[in-house]
Amino acid sequence: MPQKLLEISKVGKSYGNSVILSDANLVINEGEFIALVGMSGGGKSTLLRMLAGLEETSAGSIIQDGNKIHGLNKEARVMFQEDRLLPWMNVIDNVLLDKKGKQAVSEATELLEQVELEQYAKQFPSQLSGGQRQRVALARALMSHPRLLLLDEPLGALDALTRTKMQDLIRKVCQDKAITTFLVTHDINEAVRMADRIAIIKNGTIWRIVDNPYRGKESLIDKEKEVEISEEILAEILD
């Protein structure tokens, strides 16, 4: 039986009269990779921001380790859609951010090796490509050893080839470190390629959760099954 990390129960969010999300329920287990898919403007990012504590819930509660999330969720780190790297700092300083000391520097270097950017450590973000910048952002997020990694469509702006490479890289790094990961995406194929379970957001709530048994611990992907599940989810959303 997997350990429960976080429980979203009856969560709602509204701005004035417009309701974005209502009665959303989801349990996220320790170490799993879960994706949230749905149409644009369906409240996916809003839910992620509530998990990060960047926004408060209007109704219901998000419980993490028995505590209701209120204010910044210190055990979570967000990778935003834009890389949000500080343009005035070189790559390694961006990864380090406020951390100091030899230990931190060697750790940051190690992370850069894992995202295959060790030779770019002294360059500025503007000298890197979009995919490289997102890899730096990933290293920065991992630098603080989060228990929960929140990915807010981080690959949305990348070209298809870079995207596939990044999906595998992120999946691998998160799996190696056994970090619980929550991915928000509008790309069903991406969700199927990366996540253990896929939550579908529809009509302003979490509509259904689909298991993705062909991803996960096994490294082999059953292409046919993948397509099958993708089509199933797509049908579900469009229904």
Binding site: A52, G53, L54, L72, K74, R77, V78, F80, E82, R84, L86, W88, M89, L97, D98, R140, S144
Partner: peptide, 27 residues
């Protein structure tokens, strides 16, 4: 403001937020 939000969500102290994000951005 997106960079400031990043800094806050990455738990930068007020001082670090100023030194590393706001001041260089305004420089």
């Amino acid at each position: 403001p997106k960079l400031i939000e990043m800094g806050k969500s990455y738990e930068l102290s007020k001082k670090d937020l100023f030194i590393k994000v706001i001041f260089p951005g305004a420089l």
